[in-house]
Amino acid sequence: MVDLGHAALGAWGGGRFMHFGRPLDEEEVVELLRPDDRLRTVITADVYGAGDADRVVGRAIAGRPRDEVRLVGAIGHDFYDGERQGAKGFPRFTSPALRGPEGYADYLRRACEASLERCGTDRFDLLLLHNPDRIGYTSEAVWEGLVALRDEGLTGGLGIAPGPANGFTLDVLTCLDRFGDEIDWAMLILGPAEPWPGRLALEACVQHDVRVLTRVTDYGGAFWGDLTPQTPMGEWDHRRFRPDGWIERAGRLLREVATIGAARGLTPMQVAAQWTLAQPAVACVVPTLIEELPAPEGVEAPAPRPILEKRAELAALPREQRLTTAELDRITQLGDNSGCMALKGASPVFEGDEQPDGWGIGTPQLEAARRWGIDPDRELVKTH
């Protein structure tokens, strides 16, 4: 199984493709994503910028020996034949409007080879199925197509990356139970401010020998310390969809985490990362690197931190665990977010026609819930 290191860089950072904070220009993104001896892994997704992120990542890794870089790709949204659906983005390649199961393998090969060409390399170290719909989690044709790419050397390993929003717990469990022998990594939303529902899938990852890399460990940038309620957010900033009061909640947790970190020589972001790395199966964190927009003139707020300063802080994350068991438990208690939001994927409260990011619970999901001791009606619903 490929070693990604304990921290990695994601092409969604820097605001150029995912609209977080100040959008960096291309040269700045290249510098941000350039791997080195401490941050060797770079993660891209072909749909970001409809291929443009791959090209930028290719520039970032160019000139460095390939065996010194860990390159992770992600495919799943069809921007070749599909039409963008506004804020929902491009459709999944498994959409019945685009193709049936007989076309899945050809699409996966086409998308993988095109992404590799843009990245300027001949193989991924890890290839993720990006934001699958229900079909992606359950289709043998999808996973046979992915396995073929691995067996032919286009990737060293395979994984799954649920999203884009929080949830998909039963779907991940169902996928692991059916295809876990072929899956090396799972990318989950997980951090001290959002332990739920991601932690519900960790035991299954342990049992299936699947490693976890986590995104949004920074909780929308809050753990970097320069996000306040006064921080402006652009029209397409995804954080605008978070519930009211989330920044204030983050601030209360940040103060507690800062106190713990000060005693251990860790920044709040590094505490968040070490808490996450202490969870079962978690082996790598990929926080979002954001350079916040400055507050309006006359509004008192901390100045935005330069994004390369945040990168340096991530690179300095100690590999050895410095937090005590009591401190880890204290952070878990403080950050508990159980029942705070409606979840995506298979849901006991879903109604209506199946959507690309939401559907009702079927027999496979119910069986997975029973196997892993989860009560969907109690543990996978919004309660407050």
Score class of each variant (00 low, 15 high):
residue 159 G to K: 03
residue 140 E to M: 13
residue 149 L to I: 08
residue 171 D to L: 04
residue 146 L to C: 06
residue 169 T to G: 05
residue 129 L to P: 06
residue 178 R to W: 08
residue 160 I to F: 06
residue 187 M to C: 15
residue 182 E to P: 00
residue 172 V to L: 15
residue 189 I to D: 12
residue 150 R to G: 08
residue 157 G to L: 06
residue 185 W to T: 02
residue 151 D to I: 13
residue 166 N to K: 10
residue 171 D to C: 07
residue 186 A to L: 14
residue 175 C to S: 12
residue 190 L to P: 02
residue 147 V to D: 12
residue 172 V to G: 10
residue 156 G to F: 10
residue 139 S to T: 09
residue 183 I to W: 01
residue 136 G to H: 02
residue 152 E to P: 14
residue 186 A to S: 12
residue 148 A to N: 08
residue 142 V to W: 00
residue 161 A to Y: 10
residue 131 N to T: 14
residue 187 M to A: 15
residue 144 E to P: 13
residue 158 L to W: 13
residue 132 P to N: 07
residue 145 G to M: 03
residue 138 T to P: 02
residue 161 A to I: 06
residue 135 I to K: 09
residue 189 I to P: 02
residue 134 R to S: 11
residue 131 N to S: 14
residue 162 P to M: 07
residue 170 L to S: 02
residue 156 G to Q: 04
residue 169 T to M: 04
residue 146 L to N: 03
residue 174 T to Y: 04
residue 135 I to H: 13
residue 145 G to H: 01
residue 156 G to R: 03
residue 174 T to D: 07
residue 170 L to C: 02
residue 163 G to F: 01
residue 153 G to A: 10
residue 173 L to P: 09
residue 144 E to S: 15
residue 179 F to G: 05
residue 165 A to C: 08
residue 182 E to F: 14
residue 135 I to L: 08
residue 184 D to P: 09
residue 170 L to R: 00
residue 158 L to H: 09
